[in-house]
Nucleic acid binder design. Structure first.
Lengths: 343, 343
DNA sequence: CTGAAAGCGCTAACAA
DNA sequence: TTGTTAGCGCTTTCAG
């Protein structure tokens, strides 16, 4: 049903090659013919078929992005900015959400292969080596997140958690906190390990203390944060501050603390990571370790674009900085451990 | 770089036609050859090129979705569910976010045309007639939201606000509220008009009252809700309850009310629309008019799929029901108007 | 049951 | 400066 180049050519009384040249701004066309052709294109409001272009040129001008949780505002924002970048650069976005199911990561990769995307952003941490292989083998550059390793065709972006955590913990120490808990991410993920390790290192470095029962696993979501906080608050002694692996987790913790009638930050301080917009909306507004989405998205894009020019260029390591954002969920450590109401 | 059908054919000692037949499950192939071919396909992990298929068949198996604000959790969830539906049905999603800029709606539609999508979900309300035309003219079915009109190739999904609002207002009346304010959506949008009108109708029907200064324009975002609430609270007399055109707006209103030291719901009740996950997380949890995302997404998909079978089938009208979700942001009306602290 | 061949809409080398 | 032609990877008649 849509118009083809040949029809435009016929209408303009030229060959389709000429129409192609006009569209692609070749200077081997008379201004006169060019104008005539453009007029027809306008009138018919003709748009070339990208699949044909793809087939011919071998480039789809599509990048794929595979994310674990579209509901997490951090990823949403990232996708939003990334899509903007792509549109500015005349590329398209193929979005795949896995909901943390590794089987869906598999499907998603197949979709990417099918559509012959020019690059893949892989934000799910559960990476089976075989999957990456099939992409690289097809010459499709990949950029991963917090994978802590690169390879031919595979770049990695890693969030500089260590210095950020160090800063956050130092800040807590300044407020008088000595006993700090941590709610981790989903067990088994590389990022979870990294965030936890950064926290532990910072604690040691600052000479503070934590303990087994104060370090609980979460799932990067609100519900996980709630449950984890419940566990921490059920300990015979509780910390004066709790750091969470991301903001959603921290928000869940906040919620549980409220339910237990703890005042924040008077009774206990809570901090998160990411700085999602929600962090500034919950009560009290959340102190958090901000990860710049714009820089992040930009690096993702740069990594893929560089690889397109030269496949060997993939395999770089990028760093995203973090910055401490102090809000009202953290405050001076209470003089003594508060009593916790049991729900 | 990726393998082509011809190579598979060569390796299997058959023609590419046979390979094609095997892949598409034709029964005109011996079980024997079929097995042999499938083996090679496995080994090479060959995936056919969808652009070539598209070119041949004239169907891209891509649906496009154009949304105004990817940051709004309502849309995020909708996109998420819609994407799931598409994957289940072996289709792809082309995502475009306009950030409320109508110029970007234009660009997005062009992108859809370029990729020859099989259908477009248009969730931005600022519809210029010409744009829809160009899609229909290309035989691309469209489904809009709250556009309140259908046309050849253009279906519409509308949220049944009237009964929902009626229910919500009746509920407020039961709580003793007589004076109710409203924070509308962005001026000029059809949905804003509809939501506002549903509210006004309900107010009249229930015999309650509202007034000029209590009906303020918002922008469907948190900041707009804050500003609007500020205006309402600056009136000489303030309502005992405020309904917002969506949850983000209501959350903004909540925030302003907090800042003015109003207790919710003791001093003033606040309700929203949508029932985004955040509604249950803010303090106090928000009473809201829930719109089922799953049903919504399903209708979007059905509308497009029906149109694919028969273009004339597009042009249907669908209805999404709403349901009242009562939480803690609404309560009995205060005996007298509370005093408002000026910030 | 299988293969040869044409053609989807475009681009790029080559000819004119 | 323009047109002719081949071919990107696939599907689908039509022959065999």
């Amino acid at each position: 049903m849509p118009t083809s180049m040949r029809e435009i050519a016929k209408l303009a009384g030229v060959s389709s090659a000429t129409v192609s040249r006009v569209i692609n701004g070749s200077n081997l066309v008379t201004e006169d013919t060019s104008r005539r052709v453009r007029k027809i294109i306008q009138d018919m409001n003709f748009v070339p078929n990208s699949s044909a272009i793809h087939l011919k040129k071998g480039k789809s001008r599509i990048y794929g992005i595979i994310i674990p949780d579209l509901t997490n505002p951090f990823f949403t924002e990232l996708v939003k900015i990334f899509e903007e970048l792509l549109v500015e650069n005349e590329r398209e976005l193929l979005l795949a959400n896995t909901d943390f199911h590794s089987s869906r990561t598999q499907t998603s990769l197949r979709r990417m292969l099918l559509r012959r995307v020019d690059g893949v952003v892989l934000l799910t941490s559960e990476l089976e080596t075989g999957l990456l292989q099939s992409l690289v083998q097809n010459g499709i550059p990949v950029v991963t997140a917090d994978h802590y390793r690169t390879a031919r065709g595979v770049s990695d972006i890693l969030v500089d958690f260590a210095p950020g955590m160090s800063q956050l913990v130092a800040y807590l120490k300044e407020l008088g906190h000595r006993q700090v808990g941590f709610i981790a991410g989903t067990a088994g993920l590389v990022t979870s390990r990294v965030r936890m390790q950064s926290f532990l290192d910072a604690i040691v470095k600052q000479g503070l203390s934590s303990r087994e029962g104060w370090i609980v696993e979460g799932n990067y979501r609100i519900d996980g944060g709630s449950v984890a906080m419940d566990k921490i608050l059920s300990q015979p002694e509780i910390p004066t501050a709790v750091v969470a692996a991301n903001d959603l987790t921290a928000i869940g913790a906040l919620r549980t603390a409220h339910q237990r009638n703890l005042r924040i930050p008077e009774d206990i301080s809570i901090a998160g990571c990411d700085d999602i917009p929600m962090a500034d909306i919950v009560f009290p507004p959340l102190t958090t370790l901000r990860i710049s989405r714009r820089e992040y998205a930009q690096m993702l894009f740069e990594a893929l674009r560089a690889a397109e020019e030269d496949f060997a260029k993939a395999g770089q390591l990028f760093h995203v900085p973090t910055s401490l954002v102090v809000r009202q969920s953290t405050g001076p450590a209470p003089a003594r451990a508060p009593s916790v109401a049991t729900t």
